[in-house]
């Protein structure tokens, strides 16, 4: 019974590492093709560079460097919507990616695309991935269960241990903090439902048909939240707080 705290810690560690959180991918040949694409870019052969980068992505290569270079090349090829999409994807892999953020700022100034802006506490927390918060909730629940069990067993044996009590209080604080953050972030759209306008001259319409009335024009690169899917149309929430129908082909989901 003296080994219970050690057992509890081992228990949580085993739980966490018993499955794969993230794994490095076999990168055979990716580096060579990436270098080749970079060389093509430097030789001003932008279309070929783009094709090489896209080919890499199609074969399963994922890295923030690749996504960022795809964004730069798309911008140079005058495809601002795609450029914004790739920069946003870079940020999915590496939140607050400085180069991607700066390039998105340039695209926003240049093309005036719309994007969701958070206010107040949600703005400060918007960079914290919701997944991390959920993990915080789940792990702290188990830590709390284990430490409370430990405290109960120790008391029945007439022993008083300060360690488990401290861990229990800490777990409770983490649980409360993570829960509060999740509550504050409840209005932030999930990455799965976000998409970027990749076509040009896209218009949100009142009905899912070409003759629908105009709701608003969507500059390339604009962020939208997909609410509903209907044949070749999607019903979207637009950052200015309005909703409308856009053709499915004119937008690309943020997650690949």
């Amino acid at each position: 019974m003296k080994r219970l705290p050690l057992l509890s810690t081992t228990f949580l560690v085993v739980c966490l590492f018993s499955f794969r959180i993230d794994c490095a991918h076999a990168s055979d040949g990716f580096d060579e093709q990436f270098a080749e694409a970079n060389q093509l870019f430097e030789n001003d052969n932008l279309s070929a560079a783009m094709a090489n980068y896209e080919d890499l992505f199609q074969t399963g290569a994922v890295a923030d460097e690749l996504f960022f270079n795809l964004g730069v090349t798309a911008e140079k090829l005058d495809r601002p919507g795609e450029a914004a999409l790739w920069f946003a994807r870079t940020e999915v892999l590496t939140p607050r990616h400085p180069e991607a953020l700066q390039s998105l700022k340039f695209l926003e100034n240049e093309y005036g695309f719309l994007h969701f802006e958070q206010k107040g506490a949600a703005s400060a927390l918007s960079d914290v991935p919701k997944v991390w918060l959920w993990w915080g909730v789940h792990i702290s629940i188990w830590a709390l269960i284990l430490t409370v069990a430990l405290i109960v067993i120790s008391r029945r044996r007439g022993r008083r241990r300060p360690g488990p009590v401290a861990v229990a209080v800490l777990s409770l604080l983490v649980l409360l903090a993570a829960g509060t953050c999740l509550y504050l972030l409840r209005g932030v759209p999930a990455a799965e439902s976000l998409a970027r306008v990749t076509a040009t001259e896209v218009e949100a319409l009142t009905t899912p048909e070409p003759e629908g009335k105009l709701v608003t024009a969507l500059p390339p690169g604009s962020e939208v939240e997909i609410l509903q899917d209907y044949v070749s149309w999607v019903y979207v929430e637009i950052p200015s707080g309005v909703r409308g129908w856009v053709e499915k082909e004119s937008i690309t989901p943020l997650l690949w």
Binding site: A24, A61, V62
Partner: peptide
């Protein structure tokens, strides 16, 4: 040199 990751997007 990129740090290659899993090809799947990190969905919720």
């Amino acid at each position: 040199r990129p740090h290659w990751l899993s090809s799947a997007a990190p969905t919720f």
